[in-house]
Design a protein around this nucleic acid. Structure first.
Ligand SMILES: Nc1ncnc2c1ncn2[C@@H]1O[C@H](COP(=O)(O)OP(=O)(O)OP(=O)(O)O)[C@@H](O)[C@H]1O
Length: 765
DNA sequence: CATATCCGCATTTTT
DNA sequence: TGCGGATATG
């Protein structure tokens, strides 16, 4: 630790803020602080509450503590705000009038409940989008506004509508004994408004520590305040330049006003960056300097200059993916790097698709973080819905989910009738279903009622087994009884196998959960909770020999030797929608800063001339952020500018100025410097099976052999040789550029379809 | 009521 | 382009 780091770690008395830029060791300081509190200042592990940004980081911190002080270390509370909130609420459920078995609703469940509310209010989801309503409500909750508060302050017809929906939505959740994600933050604050409870917990948690403080919201602020207002042992670390969650309610003022809110606060600044080369740091600093209202930090490093940030112009997203792939392959081969050293970052999840397919075809293993979460997949949620009903029979959302899975002849109409019956009799949907099955409920068709009886046979059987058997076994029986595998096949033959595998994975997760000794909450509710709060990031294996693909948001707090950022184009990054939000551009810039500062050694930014979006091809302009990087830290390169039908592509060519792209000279868009297609093609050697490297390829672009032929027009009838299949004749040509596929007839009439750039083909004529 | 097919819309980012 | 909701048909 350097002196200021040490000062922070060893600080005694009063609130402390470590305000420091990227890679300056904030997280390290936080971890060491916990160790110091226990090891040197004699704090009990049980008196420590440490909030981390992921559950994984929380687990690692706890492990450290346990290795430091032994089993007692388990008594400290570490976790994300959400998981800590959930844990607190399970303990204190009755005080809030909740049952201990409450269900945590994910976004899907919340939306489903909201849709039902809209339906009951006669509001058409077409006119009023449930998604945007939910986000408004979520925002209100994170700002600690109750439905009544919202109603009071509502202005105009839309807000009045929101107020009404919000209030009904909350009631719907309470009726279902459910909490949404935001409740996990809001309800603990409500809980701590009871002075007795507050004192009890404030007394227990004598040391409260928070990582990534810049992205806390009002609600989290109040939570921390309630716990620390008396003893003032609040230790937070953060970087205002890395706040990227304003859109979900994060309040930068929490960190900006820390000193004002805590007059007795000490602020420690860390200015030495240990992560990145000075080129990368210089590039990142030059970008973030453009934001206004910053605390302002000067970062320096003892690390060497390193290499400039590479800016690559490519034709389209396919060329982009391929270029990334090739660079990674080249580096792995020639610099002996492992796949785990690379991360590919992007602004939107949809950009991962082309990367995935390219990596698959190129045989490079990857690890996708984010996107559709595992436990949000339909088949998984179906299975878990049965468990949810066993734990919490009031969970109408789960009931709605499984009522017709597998098909029981209960469609829209019967469901409506059942829900209406439940509403009139003030019972849960499950109870309405049971009464109907027993013959004194809603009037639905006899066949459907019969199927419902079958449903309860399964559910009640499972409930009975639950007392004696492990969850995994109970679930397995449910799957058998419902013929779920067959259901999957009937539904969609193509995906059935994958889906079933996912289901089996859940079973093994249950087993693992049950087999892990000394769990705080080993109940089924505990399992469901863990699963709902788990993110991909928690399962992320940083040392696995795979390239990481993830959004820039998910990359916060991580570091990699090599960072690729794709899609650095106007409208995508910064995202067009950000223009609608106040200070949206600044937040995008912070996100860019976060991306750049993940890198230890090298950064490559990609900007495409065109990109497929919604099926159409859109022309793209390079992102303004590229111009904002100080030219001294940039090296600009252009890849083969254009591909035309029937020619395999791929050689790197250098068109741009070697250095200092600056702001001028970009008006023509990117990557089109090569003139017309024919002209360009005409200049290529007639036949180059293994082109020598383009001379001016700078040495920091990994040198690799281009595996495709370059500049050759392939036509049906041409003879080729394949290393393993021997000689053959091109039968058909489809696709273009990097996606060029050849159907080749080999000896014996064997037809093979190959991607030209990967098949090591030799052209014979 | 289930199934097949069509159409329209979407992509910002996440617990 | 691809999914999910809406509509038509059996
Ligand atoms: N005093 C130090 N000596 C050597 N290396 C250090 C020191 N402090 C931190 N590091 C290293 O610097 C890197 C960044 O540390 P850390 O992740 O804690 O920074 P951070 O400020 O939390 O970064 P960010 O805000 O970007 O997430 C890590 O690899 C860490 O091991």
């Amino acid at each position: 630790l350097n002196p200021p780091q040490k000062e922070a770690v060893e600080h005694r008395g009063g609130p402390l803020l470590v305000l420091a830029g990227a890679g300056s060791g904030k997280t390290r300081v936080l971890t060491r602080r916990v160790a110091h509190l226990i090891g040197v200042q004699g704090a009990f592990p049980g008196s420590i509450l440490a909030v981390t940004f992921t559950n994984k980081a929380a687990g690692e911190m706890k492990e450290r503590i346990v290795s430091l002080v032994g089993a007692a270390g388990k008594n400290c509370w570490t976790g994300t705000f959400h998981s800590i909130g959930a844990r607190l609420l399970r303990r204190e459920a009755e005080r809030l009038g909740l049952s201990r078995d409450f269900t945590i609703f994910d976004r899907d469940d919340s939306l489903s409940s909201l849709r039902r509310v809209l339906n009951a209010l006669g509001i058409s989801p077409k006119e009023t989008s449930p998604e945007s309503l939910l986000s408004v409500i979520s925002r209100a909750k994170n700002d600690m506004m109750s439905p009544a508060d919202y109603e009071r302050e509502s202005d105009g017809p839309y807000e009045r509508l929101v107020a009404q929906v919000y209030s009904r939505y909350e009631a719907a959740l309470r009726e279902q004994n459910a909490l949404d994600f935001d409740d996990l933050l809001v309800q603990p604050v409500r809980l701590l408004r009871d002075e007795d409870v507050r004192q009890q917990y404030a007394h227990r948690f004598k040391h409260v520590l928070v990582d990534e403080y810049q992205d806390t919201n009002k609600c989290q602020y109040e939570f921390l305040h309630a716990l620390t207002v008396d003893h003032r042992q609040l230790f937070v670390v953060g970087d205002d330049d890395q706040s990227i969650y304003r859109w979900r309610g994060a309040d930068l003022n929490n960190i900006l006003d820390f000193e004002r809110d805590h007059p007795d606060a000490k602020v420690v600044r860390l200015e030495q960056n240990y992560r990145s080369t000075s080129m990368i740091l210089g590039a990142a600093n030059s970008v973030i300097r453009r934001n206004i209202g910053r605390k302002g930090k000067e970062l320096w490093t003892e690390n060497g200059d390193g290499h400039p940030v590479l800016v690559m112009d490519v034709q389209n997203e396919q060329a982009e993916a391929l270029a990334v792939l090739k660079m990674i392959k080249g580096c792995m081969q020639e610099e002996n790097r492992t796949a785990s050293e690379f991360v590919v970052l992007y602004r939107t999840n949809s950009q991962s698709r082309v990367l995935e397919t390219t990596f698959q075809q190129g045989g490079v293993p990857y690890q996708l973080v984010g996107g559709v979460r595992f436990y949000e997949r339909r088949e998984i949620k179906d299975v878990l819905a049965y468990l949810r009903l066993l734990v919490n029979p009031a969970d109408d959302t789960a009931a709605r989910r499984v009522i017709n899975v597998p098909a029981r002849g209960i469609g829209k109409k019967s469901l409506e009738d059942l829900q209406e019956f439940a509403r009139v009799h003030e019972i849960s949907l499950l109870q309405a279903m049971r009464r109907t099955a027993e013959g004194h409920g809603a009037a639905i068709r006899a066949a459907a009622a019969d199927k419902l009886r079958g449903f309860f046979l399964i559910l009640d059987g499972a409930a009975a087994r639950m007392a004696t058997s492990p969850v995994a076994e109970v679930t397995e029986q449910i799957l058998q009884d419902t013929d779920y595998e067959q259901h999957l096949e009937k539904e969609n033959e193509r995906d059935a196998a994958t889906r079933w595998e996912n289901v089996l994975e859940v079973l093994s997760a249950m087993q693992e959960f049950a087999d892990t000794p000394e769990r705080e909450d080993a109940s089924v509710a505990g399992f469901l909770q863990e699963v709902t709060l788990a993110t991909d990031l928690d399962n992320y294996e940083e040392t696995a020999p795979r390239v990481t693909l993830m959004t820039l948001h998910n990359a916060k707090g991580l570091e990699f030797p090599w960072v690729f950022i794709t899609g650095v184009e106007e409208g995508l990054f910064p995202h067009a929608n950000s223009a609608n939000e106040p200070d949206g551009l600044e937040e995008e810039r912070r996100l860019f800063y976060v991306g750049l500062t993940r890198a230890r050694e090298r950064v490559a930014l990609f900007t495409a001339a065109e990109r497929r979006r919604f099926g159409g091809i859109n022309a793209c302009m390079p992102s303004q952020f590229l111009d904002e990087i100080d030219p001294d830290f940039v090296e600009r390169k252009s890849l083969a500018p254009d591909y035309s039908r029937g020619r395999t592509g791929g050689a790197y060519r250098n068109y741009g100025p070697g250095r200092g792209a600056g702001s001028g000279g970009r008006s023509g868009g990117s990557g089109r410097a090569g003139g017309s297609h024919d002209e360009w093609r005409g200049r290529q050697p007639a036949r180059t099976v293994r082109p020598s490297r383009v001379d001016d390829t700078p040495d920091f672009i990994p040198s690799y052999e281009d595996e495709s032929q370059d500049g050759v027009t392939v036509r049906p009838g041409m003879r080729v040789r394949h290393p393993s299949w021997g000689e053959g004749v091109v039968d058909a040509v489809e696709g273009r550029g990097e996606g060029l596929k050849l159907t080749i007839k080999f000896r014996g009439g064997v037809l093979k379809k190959v991607l030209a750039i990967y098949a090591k083909l030799e052209l014979l004529g």
